[in-house]
Design a binder for these strands. Sequence first.
DNA 1: GCAAAAGTGTTGAGTTTACACCCATGT
DNA 2: ACATGGGTGTAAACTCAACACTTTTGC
Lengths: 229, 229
Amino acid sequence: MSRIEYKNYDRFLLAVDCIIFGFDGNSLKALLIKRGFEPEKGKWSLMGGFAAQDESIDQAAGRILLNLTGLDQIYMEQLHCFGEVDRDPGGRVISLAYFALIKIDDSDGEKLEQHNAKWVDLRKLPALIFDHRQMIRLAKERLQQKVSNHPIGFELLPHKFTLQQLQALYEAVYETNFDKRNFTRKILSLGVLQRLDEKEKASSKKGAFYYVFDKKKYKRLESEGIKFI
Amino acid sequence: MSRIEYKNYDRFLLAVDCIIFGFDGNSLKALLIKRGFEPEKGKWSLMGGFAAQDESIDQAAGRILLNLTGLDQIYMEQLHCFGEVDRDPGGRVISLAYFALIKIDDSDGEKLEQHNAKWVDLRKLPALIFDHRQMIRLAKERLQQKVSNHPIGFELLPHKFTLQQLQALYEAVYETNFDKRNFTRKILSLGVLQRLDEKEKASSKKGAFYYVFDKKKYKRLESEGIKFI
DNA sequence: GCAAAAGTGTTGAGTTTACACCCATGT
DNA sequence: ACATGGGTGTAAACTCAACACTTTTGC
């Protein structure tokens, strides 16, 4: 049981890169940074960092996300491990990609500025270093899958939201349009939304009801992975 | 662009563990080995090995699978990276789990014996080292997902097979039973099966037609991830 | 009073499920 | 001739997609 059993094998640098999604009411965005060190300093990149011996990889991912956004305990999921030999010109680095869903308004603006971070429309990505574009593409596919049978879309919306905002989110994720009546009926039939008495009046004269999200019913559905859309 | 940029970060041993699924006509099986080295020597384990600097992680996974089964170019997919600090008492080892689907009869019996490998019914798993049981559970969930919208179930069957064998496979994967008529109709309606003139006569007097698998149509469906079951 | 977004039902098409009997053949 | 697994059709329930008008209210 000693720690010398495996001494003759190669060791690797282990990076964690975070695909951080947000939704601004219109389009789906990813949080990108201007890379602050070589190689590829100054280029657009995902937020990342290296894992350390004394933390689990999930902890490393959480640390890196906290570092950039100031946010803790947010939805985060391992996406894929990227391990091509030459993926990083700076060395043999294995990258673990994680994707996270955050509410744009919750993030810490100062921290974002410190890292030169910017929310970028997923349909208008700039050139990115290494295989980061591929990571984002894969994350987006995973998000689509996930959203279709888990209620994680709610992670991207403010606490209270209108049906129109929710629909806009789903439309952004799938890059398509839904029929308002069908969408409303389907979502409400799941019974995970709770209507408030309050209305959002900014975007219409009549005003649209706010909804929140019934955590108990949500949890029940989440386990069996109900079909959402 | 030099290779010294990252020198101050921790380095990790990177294991690759393979969840190898097979189907014997009745039940879904995983290929396990009796571990040949410390720690936990002699215990049941997944087949694994360490990644090397000069290979990609996918290559490492392929190498390890080839090593055990003698098989090349088989269906294999990265599952998840396991990175808890204390997952391996022999050291800080990050494990990349891959899952593979093979036809049991294709594998090299001698090689399997050399590794003390055994096909084990998924419903009757022995105690396994480390987090390997969790890996298998996750792989099984992924297999269910995958099989539902990709025609990968065929990877587990012999080249030609009867509808009954195919149904038995799906039933094993989902641990449920399907109605024969509904199953047949649905599968045939996809148009990826081609009926041969030949019949399998071993298990019935009338004989059941063999089918093979139309690769062209399969490829077309695979891309969009058609709904199978 | 009118512009602008909110809210709300129905119908037809297609899909899914449940269900049972005859067929071909080796013995 | 009979036992065994192979092969096939139909009807009811349900789900999904398409479609348009009335309501509210700030200006």
